[in-house]
Structure formats: C-alpha cells, structure tokens
Computed example of a mutant assay.
Amino acid sequence: MDRYKYPLRYGEDEGYEHRDKAVFKMLVPLESAIAQHGYMGGIDPCATDLAIFPFVRQFAAVDPAWFAHQPLPALQAWLAGWMASPLFATCMVKLPSQSIRPFPTLGKPRADTTR
C-alpha cells in the first residue's frame, strides 16, 4: 500500500506497478468473495470485513477516479456501504486528544449468558 500511496518515499516516481500487483493479489480475490456472498464471511458482516475495510478505503482514496473505473463492482458497492454506515460515521468523529468515549452500540445488546 505505501509503495503505491507514497512512491517518492521509496525512490520511485510512480506506484502503478505496486498498485497493479495489489489489484491482482488482493482486490480481485476480495471482489470474488464479496460478489459471491455480500461480505467476507458470508451474508452478514464479520470481523474480516472490519479489518480489511481501512485498507480498501485507503487504496481507493489514492486515485478515486481510477478506482471507480475498475471492474470491481461488488467491492465498490461493499466499500460504499461501509462508508455510508452509521458505524463508520461514529468512528470517524474527531475527538479532542486523550478524550475517552464509550464504544458505539451496534444494535441490541447481547443478553448476559454467564448467569
């Protein structure tokens, strides 16, 4: 990612070679999995979706016009869905440094099963 996003840091003029490798090795397999089920773990979001989302978001942000024209419709829709989600909006609120805030609730709390 960094070699694509910041090629000058690595003594390169452009990061296109690294971008193309990432598309082949990461984005195409993600596209296939998401196209098949909607999310990485199946029909419902899972921790893998949350873990890979920042990478895909940053990758798309380097050149949004290029990313929008790639043959990755399921991945693009998946990314748009996460970016429009209330969870993402809540997580991206800028807070003062060193402030503490409770974790957002994602729906109904689970029942306590330890009793």
Results as ranks from 00 to 15, higher is better:
residue 61 A to Q: 15
residue 96 P to V: 09
residue 48 T to R: 08
residue 108 K to A: 12
residue 115 R to N: 10
residue 13 D to H: 07
residue 29 P to N: 09
residue 100 I to S: 11
residue 76 Q to Y: 04
residue 102 P to R: 07
residue 101 R to C: 09
residue 32 S to G: 02
residue 65 A to P: 01
residue 98 Q to F: 13
residue 74 A to I: 03
residue 69 H to R: 13
residue 26 M to N: 09
residue 85 S to E: 03
residue 76 Q to V: 02
residue 109 P to D: 01
residue 38 G to W: 01
residue 65 A to H: 07
residue 35 A to K: 07
residue 22 A to Y: 05
residue 74 A to N: 04
residue 39 Y to V: 03
residue 41 G to A: 11
residue 94 K to S: 13
residue 43 I to R: 12
residue 105 T to F: 07
residue 107 G to L: 08
residue 22 A to N: 00
residue 61 A to V: 06
residue 59 F to Y: 08
residue 111 A to I: 14
residue 32 S to R: 15
residue 39 Y to F: 15
residue 96 P to A: 14
residue 1 M to T: 03
residue 61 A to D: 15
residue 68 A to K: 15
residue 89 A to M: 04
residue 42 G to D: 05
residue 115 R to F: 11
residue 64 P to H: 02
residue 6 Y to W: 12
residue 55 F to S: 10
residue 34 I to T: 00
residue 23 V to F: 03
residue 8 L to K: 14
residue 110 R to Y: 11
residue 34 I to V: 15
residue 42 G to K: 03
residue 99 S to V: 05
residue 108 K to Y: 09
residue 37 H to I: 03
residue 73 P to D: 06
residue 37 H to V: 04
residue 110 R to W: 10
residue 32 S to F: 01
residue 54 P to K: 09
residue 9 R to M: 14
residue 44 D to L: 11
residue 49 D to Q: 05
residue 68 A to C: 07
residue 15 G to R: 04
residue 13 D to Q: 13
residue 20 D to R: 08
residue 68 A to H: 05
residue 107 G to I: 09
residue 28 V to I: 15
residue 12 E to R: 13
residue 35 A to G: 15
residue 2 D to N: 12
residue 20 D to K: 10
residue 80 A to Y: 00
residue 7 P to V: 02
residue 96 P to H: 08
residue 13 D to N: 13
residue 17 E to M: 08
residue 39 Y to E: 05
residue 46 C to P: 05
residue 32 S to D: 09
residue 16 Y to L: 13
residue 37 H to N: 14
residue 65 A to L: 12
residue 91 C to D: 06
residue 77 A to Q: 15
residue 15 G to M: 05
residue 85 S to W: 03
residue 104 P to S: 08
residue 31 E to I: 05
residue 50 L to D: 00
residue 106 L to Q: 14
residue 15 G to Q: 01
residue 113 T to K: 12
residue 57 R to S: 13
residue 40 M to A: 07
residue 4 Y to T: 00
residue 16 Y to H: 13
residue 106 L to K: 05
residue 26 M to A: 11
residue 18 H to C: 00
residue 14 E to C: 00
residue 51 A to R: 02
residue 60 A to D: 00
residue 99 S to I: 11
residue 78 W to H: 04
residue 96 P to E: 15
residue 77 A to E: 10
residue 40 M to S: 07
residue 17 E to A: 15
residue 42 G to H: 06
residue 97 S to N: 08
residue 98 Q to D: 13
residue 4 Y to M: 01
residue 81 G to E: 07
residue 76 Q to L: 06
residue 112 D to E: 12
residue 20 D to L: 09
residue 78 W to I: 09
residue 89 A to E: 12
residue 64 P to S: 07
residue 50 L to M: 13
residue 21 K to W: 03
residue 25 K to N: 12
residue 88 F to D: 08
residue 91 C to G: 09
residue 62 V to K: 05
residue 46 C to Q: 00
residue 100 I to A: 12
residue 24 F to M: 14
residue 17 E to S: 11
residue 43 I to N: 08
residue 49 D to E: 02
residue 31 E to G: 06
residue 92 M to T: 15
residue 88 F to R: 04
residue 89 A to T: 10
residue 9 R to A: 09
residue 20 D to P: 01
residue 9 R to G: 04
residue 66 W to K: 08
residue 88 F to S: 02
residue 91 C to K: 12
residue 51 A to E: 10
residue 73 P to K: 04
residue 80 A to F: 05
residue 59 F to R: 03
residue 39 Y to L: 05
